[in-house]
C-alpha cells in the first residue's frame, strides 16, 4: 500500500514538476524578491527560532547564503517550517525554492523523488552518549547496556546491527520524544542514549550538568545532511551548489566576514578569482560577479557558520571532527573557484 501511494505520489510529482521546470527558479525568486526556504519546526543548531523569533542555525545560513548570492541580500528569505513528512512535497509542489532541513542524502531520495541533493553542509551519523562517571571510552565497551532510543526505525535498526556485529547485547528503552529520552537518561533509567550525534549534542545542553555526559567517538551510520532543490532546473542547482562551495572555499582561503574587505586587496590569485575580480565570477550562474563576496560578507565562511551555530561559540559545542576541512583532516571539500 505504501509503495503504491509512493508510486502515485511520484507520478503526480513528475506531472507537476514537468510544468514547473519550465519557469526558471532564479527568475521566479528575483521577481518575487525573496527566497522561500523550507526549514524544520525546531532542530537546535540547524534551524530553530530564537527568543526574538528569528530563524538561526547552520541550515538557515545555507538559505541566507543562497539569498545573498541570488538577490544580494541575505535577509531576503522567507522561512517555511516543515515537518519531516511534508518536506519533499513542499519542494515538489513549488511551495519552497530550496529545502534546507537536516535532510539525509540517500539514494532513494536523490533518485526517485524528482529532487537533487546540492551537497553536504554537515556530516552527521548515529552516535552514543554516556555518563562520564561510567568510565566508558568506546562504544565497544557497551555490552549489556540499557539504551534509550527515540522511536524512529533507522536508529533502532542501526543500533541492533551494530550490537549484533560486535557480539554484544543491549536492553532497548524506546521513547517518543527527545524531551522524554533525555529525562530518562538524566534520571539513570538508561546508561546510553543513542541518536544522531548532532542531536545528542543538542540534548546534552538540556542536562543539569552538560559536562557530565560525553558523546563517544564511534559513529555507526552515515547521515550526510544537505540542502535539496527540484530536479530539472540546473541553473538553480548550480546556484545552490556554488553558494555552499563559497562558504567552504572561503574557509580554505582564510576569508571571513570581518577580514574579507581587507583581504580583497590582496594579490593572491585564488582570492581575486573567488571574489570575481578575475576569472569567471558569476557569469555561468547568471549572478553578479561578486556573489561569493556577498555570501561571505553577509553570512560568513563555513568556519564561522559552524562555530556560531553548532560549534564552540554555541551551547552545543560540537567539535569539527570529520566536518573539518580536508586540509585539517576532515572530509569537507569543495571544488575550486576557477
Amino acid at each position: 500500500m505504501k509503495k503504491l501511494l509512493q508510486l502515485a505520489g511520484a507520478t503526480l510529482v513528475l506531472a507537476a514538476t514537468a510544468d514547473l521546470a519550465q519557469a526558471a527558479t532564479l527568475d521566479t525568486v528575483k521577481e518575487r524578491g525573496y527566497l522561500q526556504c523550507g526549514v524544520s519546526t525546531g532542530v537546535p543548531g540547524f534551524s530553530n527560532p530564537d527568543d526574538k523569533g528569528n530563524w538561526t542555525g547552520i541550515d538557515v545560513d545555507v538559505c541566507r547564503a543562497m539569498a545573498a548570492a541570488a538577490l544580494g541580500d541575505a535577509a531576503k528569505v522567507k522561512y517555511v517550517p516543515l515537518t519531516a513528512k511534508e518536506r519533499f512535497t513542499a519542494l515538489q509542489s513549488g511551495e519552497i525554492d530550496v529545502l534546507s532541513r537536516n535532510t539525509t542524502w540517500t539514494q532513494t531520495r536523490d533518485t526517485s523523488l524528482g529532487l537533487n541533493f546540492v551537497g553536504v553542509n554537515y556530516y552527521d551519523g548515529q552516535g552514543f552518549m554516556v555518563n562520564k562517571n561510567l568510565g566508558v571510552k568506546s562504544a565497544l565497551e557497551l555490552d549489556g547496556a540499557t539504551v534509550c532510543i527515540q522511536a524512529g526505525t533507522t536508529t533502532e535498526l542501526n543500533l541492533a546491527d551494530y550490537f549484533r556485529e560486535n557480539d554484544m547485547t543491549f536492553q532497548p528503552v524506546v521513547f517518543d520524544t527527545s524531551a522524554q529520552s533525555i529525562q530518562s537518561f538524566e534520571t539513570g533509567r538508561c546508561d546510553v542514549l543513542t541518536s544522531d550525534q548532532s542531536q545528542l549534542y543538542a540534548l546534552r545542553t538540556k542536562l543539569a550538568k552538560p559536562s557530565d555526559a560525553v558523546v563517544l567517538p564511534e559513529v555507526i551510520s552515515k547521515e550526510p545532511l544537505g540542502p535539496v532543490v527540484r530536479q530539472g532546473d540546473d541553473q538553480w542547482l548550480n546556484i545552490a551548489k556554488w553558494s555552499l562551495y563559497a562558504l567552504i572555499n572561503a574557509e580554505e582561503l582564510g576569508l571571513n566576514s570581518s577580514n574579507i574587505d581587507s583581504k580583497a586587496k590582496s594579490k593572491d590569485p585564488a582570492i581575486s578569482r573567488f571574489l570575481g575580480k578575475t576569472g569567471t565570477g558569476g557569469k555561468g550562474l547568471a549572478l553578479p560577479d561578486d556573489f561569493a563576496y556577498q555570501v561571505i560578507k553577509q553570512v560568513g565562511s563555513y568556519d564561522e557558520v559552524f562555530e556560531r551555530n553548532i560549534g564552540s561559540k554555541s551551547p552545543l559545542l560540537i567539535e569539527r571532527g570529520i566536518n573539518a576541512l580536508w586540509t585539517d583532516g576532515g572530509i569537507v571539500y569543495a571544488p575550486p573557484f576557477r
Binding site: G42, P44, D50, P81, E86, E186
Partner: peptide, 22 residues
C-alpha cells in the same frame, strides 16, 4: 504535525532551543 506553529508547537520549538536548559 503539519508544521503550523500554534501555541503548543511554538512552545515545543522553544524548549528545543539550546540556549535554554531543560
Amino acid at each position: 504535525i503539519i508544521g503550523l506553529f500554534d501555541l503548543l508547537a511554538v512552545m515545543q520549538a522553544g524548549i528545543a532551543d539550546v540556549n535554554w536548559p531543560n
